[in-house]
Design a protein around this nucleic acid. Structure first.
Lengths: 294, 294
DNA sequence: ATATACTGTTCTCAATATGGTGACAGTTTG
DNA sequence: CAAACTGTCACCATATTGAGAACAGTATAT
């Protein structure tokens, strides 16, 4: 028995004062109203209203119950509205996790624009490359680079593709042996990124073991070392491209086979995504479509 | 969809943190819980909790909804308890309507005893012989004398049977013509009771037209006039019996056919009767069983 | 007075919704 | 690497449901 509907009908009945009118107003049959009210009375174990053929009269019990029923329905409406607000309102917090390097480069300008367009959305951005559990940490969105499929608990929207480039400063290259094949790297000072899955193997062609005197968890830090001519780095293109374009660093082994990764926007829910989040993801997609060749 | 049950299950789920445990505790299947929560989420248009295989995590929405849901359930409990209290509690008011004459004679002692036994029941007794609508006036109980069937809106418990007696004082009878047949009454001073259905026809045998110089809406007032030897009265036996026994008045036409009426306890509801009322009706039944021959 | 219209209730029956079973995909644990 | 567990999904017999008509009763209209 759907007690809630029964209560709603009871309140309506108390207002309209007629089973028939309630039936008309709700597009149902009299019999249904009668049954439903009867069921509610059964459930409560008390009569809510006296039916005399022409007049309905609330019982003592009915009067008290009516009052409480109205409050209950109000509370329910409240709860529904609360959800709806949180869902459809663009206001609200958005807790986002993103890779450090990406955050410092592209995302900083991207989200600056986004915040300008959506002043009511509050951003809470955690930059970091440690693998965190988005759900456990309560993140609404995570930006992840991946070459493989994504954890099945998440939906992943592909945003852009990127690759890595082996970078060095012109000065470094001039002072050291030429690099023509991936294997040549083993005799150079190759910086290692702390969180890199393969540790000290760069995924060029079949993988090249490298070694070097710098290990750091920031590709930007690494870039500065590269620019100073200290060594080579295996750097995402969104970090190094500008410096390559400006000539500060140069790419080596450009023709070698390197993994192409996809940047995903990850969000945990399947059915219902808050509009603020939808808006954010759309923005990400559009931004990368405009600014990058996917 | 039974939203209420869904809400209950959601609250349980939030507490236990596992679909399976909820299923066990409610003696249902996991699938049912899953479905029901899913339905609630559909209805709300938002996801209430993130399911990762090992941990359930409330959504922002879920947290807010949980809080509200708990309040709603409390309110519902409140409402139910309110009804239950009013229903099962012996405390409370009892608004009773009864015929004036009966009230002054038997009921006064009866209810004195009843109140003594049930100090927590508050009585609100309206004595009067006008026909009142019990429901409209908000009476819990009405005592009615009737020879015919009762209004179908009410349940009527028969309490006792009674009849009427033609009474006169010995002095009156000594001074006037003898009364041997009903027709003889037409030559006597016969008092008329104001609310009597047949007005000035006494329902003896086939009915006897009478006339007299007193019309009053109280059989007790009438009794006093009779005792003084002013005339004859058609009096309920519960009013006149004692005086007949004591010899103050005597009955005439004792053998004539007079209507036997039944005193009913009338109460409006069919399904649910508050226990205080049940108790009162039981008391009435018992009292009349002991003190009168039905 | 009598007829009519309208009240709420009850009955039956078809249609819908429901909840349990078992399989499933995916994880964590031993 | 197997086993035990998570929540979800599809299937299907079952139960509940709600509409419609018949009903009993009462007030209004004629």
């Amino acid at each position: 028995m759907d007690k809630l509907r029964a209560i709603k009908l009871f309140v309506k009945l108390a207002n309209l004062g007629s089973f028939t009118k309630v039936a008309e107003q709700t597009n149902t049959s009299k019999s249904m109203i009668s049954k439903e009210i009867g069921r509610l009375e059964d459930d409560l174990g008390a009569r809510l209203l006296h039916r005399s053929t022409r007049n309905l009269q609330l019982t003592h019990v009915g009067e008290g119950y009516l009052q409480r029923a109205i409050e209950i329905l109000e509370k329910l409406d409240d709860a529904d509205n609360f959800v709806s607000d949180l869902q459809h309102n663009v206001r609200g917090k958005l807790k986002i996790n993103a890779p450090m390097a990406l955050g410092i480069t592209d995302l900083s300008v991207l989200f600056a624009d986004f915040m300008h367009e959506n002043p009511d959305i509050e951003l809470d951005i955690h930059l970091g490359d440690e693998s965190v559990d988005l759900v456990e940490q309560g993140f609404d969105l995570g930006l992840r680079a991946s070459s493989r499929a994504i954890d099945s608990n998440y939906v992943g929207k592909p945003l852009t593709r990127f690759t890595y480039k082996v970078c060095a400063s012109p000065e470094y290259l001039a002072k050291h042996k030429a690099i023509n094949l991936p294997q040549d790297l083993s005799e150079h000072n190759c910086f290692v990124y702390s969180y890199f899955q393969g540790k000290d193997v760069w995924p060029i062609e079949d993988g090249v073991a490298v070694k070097g005197n710098l290990k750091v968890n920031s590709t930007l830090f690494m870039m500065d070392a590269i620019k100073k001519g200290l060594g080579l780095g295996f750097i995402p293109d969104f970090v190094c491209q500008k410096m390559i374009d400006s000539g500060e660093v140069v790419e080596v082994l450009a023709e070698a086979n390197k993994p192409r990764l996809t940047l995903y926007a990850l969000y945990p829910a399947r059915h219902f995504v808050p509009t603020k989040l939808v808006k954010c993801i759309r923005y990400l997609e559009d931004w990368f479509k405009e600014n990058k060749s996917l």
